[in-house]
Design a protein around this nucleic acid. Structure first.
Lengths: 192, 192, 192, 192
DNA sequence: CAGTAAGCGAGACGGTACGTCGGGTCTTACC
DNA sequence: GGTAAGACCCGACGTACCGTCTCGCTTACTG
């Protein structure tokens, strides 16, 4: 029987939102607690997400989907690399603030959303690659390494925002400043 | 009766080693599996660590203790800040490779080892503060922000090493390069 | 939600039967063994009986309920006292053979079924009282004392049946003969 | 190595006394509690009694030894059977009042002390056999059956004394009265 | 407009891990 | 050399959660 996809997706989104809320408030939550927070029965929760793992995976997927949308909106290819990185950083920190619970991955993320992770990281990798090819970014470090370093800064920036230490703008500026120019005071020369 | 502390500590260390091993091989492990891996009974495991949480906390504590020792060895205060950072980075990545399981903190770290975390981060903060005061590091970002950025890079570097993507030396160099000088190609000017 | 009580009671009875069987075969049994013998999971067993003690209590209650039914059937009030005692004895020994495990009360029976014990002993006391009042039983011993003596003989008779030393009929006859007429050979006169 | 038997036996007796006390107060007691009540270490307790079962067996053995002594003192063979039974009953109830905990046999008595039980029951059986042979006791019930009936009454009498319902003398009189002459009022004729 | 099929809440069930406790064996220091 | 202290293994107990299942009920689609 053909399911009307809109309704199911809507309920699924509502469940994910409730789950993200209760997971953000407490550190952990049982499936029963998540179901209660979503206002549905436990069986229904299992009808939408077969596993606890599937639920967590759905959370990451939703976050990633949001991020992908923002990345697409950012039109990274038509602006200079530093500008594109600035947009990317702000977009990630803005969107990511809603999915803080995922930074404490209490279970290993399954391989199922590896593709999603790939789809999310690929534009970033592409941007960095473009920067390296265009002479905007250093080439003594591989694109992969630069990507890892950037995401490390990004995650820490997100953590700062989630902890309330700073706002999105300040965190974005810090991430960008370090990633582009480093922490060394101007005029102090290269690597020791 | 006065307990001979050395023996108990030795057994505790052996248990922690076995637990780290089995946790590193599999992603997770039940208390019974950990006890079996340590060659002891489950009750004895509970005599040494009252909780699963206490066991995990013991693992982080051991790792942190190792790192603190390496930091103390690095003699950070007597060398220029960039050199000190380089030593710190290499020390962290070398030591941290043994405690990879802790980077997937499946349970929120209890407040008990907050003090330990403090003792571990304080020298790093001090070093960054010294760099900022001496004009070696930029001052438009707070010391705390610089610290967060540095640790973000550090953790990603550790992850790269743990994944086998690169060696300790290369990861250290990348972390240091980005943190000090950023990813921008030389001669491309300041922040946009 | 209104629970359908019949089903639950039926399952409970099945569990009790299985528990009585496995307890009769072995002397003791763990909760896991009882659950396995009942063909259910351990958790389900705990859903029906919160404690091991509750399970044992349920066993005694079932046995007592059976005995109460037999006592009611015996129509003790409408026949002469010796006949009523004979019916009672046979009924007890017949029914009690199924609950042998309860004679080795490995845990003190809780106060919860004190009322049940009362309901079981009261008809017997009433019968003895009737016999004493009607001149059928001696009155130099109190009704309570006669009750205790009778139940002492009864329990030993049950034990003999359970051990296979004798059948129900012979044991009943022995209990009745001693309780009514004593062991002294006929024509040998009163107490020394 | 020749052990000095007196000391060991003395300590053993002290342990048994303490165990009987603590078991009488509470219904049950762990080996640690018994050891603490006896003022000794748990290991020492296990040195004297290899098992919990052995300890319980030791308790029954002590009680039985006491009873055997009283039986021997009673000089049962030289007096008429009813008199001998009266002495036996009083002796049992007097001695047994000290060993009440054994009437709730929380574990099956092992076969180890079967010999002791035999040595204790044999004089009683002999006495009943003598009574049957001499025409003092009825012969339509076997000696074994008479023995069981008598001990059933005896145990109930002991229970009454232990519960404080009555004194030793009254309980003895009741046991004896029922066992010899039964509960039927005088002049009411034989079995129905 | 009535029948029907779906999705739902409630909750029982088996299984597994956790943390506790008691029994029985062993070693180690002490007197 | 026996004793006290206590560590150790084993297994049972009682609790909590996960994932599966069935049961009525309601709701919305359909003839």
């Amino acid at each position: 029987m053909a399911e009307r996809p809109a309704l199911r997706d809507h309920i699924e989104a509502a469940i994910l939102t409730a789950a993200a809320d209760v997971l953000a408030v407490r550190g952990t939550a049982s499936m029963a607690e998540i179901a209660a927070a979503a206002g549905i029965g436990r069986a229904t929760l299992y009808r939408y997400f077969a596993n606890r793992e599937a639920l967590l995976s759905g959370l990451t997927e939703a976050a990633a989907r949001d991020l992908v949308a923002r990345i697409d909106d950012a039109d990274l290819d038509s602006v200079p690399v530093p500008t594109a990185l600035a947009r990317l950083t702000r977009g990630f920190l803005t969107a990511g603030s809603k999915y803080g619970a995922l930074l404490q991955p209490e279970t290993h993320l399954p391989e199922k959303d590896a593709g999603l992770k790939q789809r999310l990281s690929e534009p970033v990798r592409g941007l960095i690659g473009r920067g390296a090819g265009a002479g905007a970014l250093r080439t003594d470090l591989s694109v992969d390494t630069l990507f890892e370093m950037y995401t490390g800064l990004l995650e820490k920036g997100l953590l700062m925002v989630l902890r309330g230490d700073t706002g999105v703008e300040q965190a974005s500026a810090a991430v960008l400043a370090i990633f582009l120019d480093g922490a060394r005071a101007a005029g102090n020369g290269g690597t020791p």
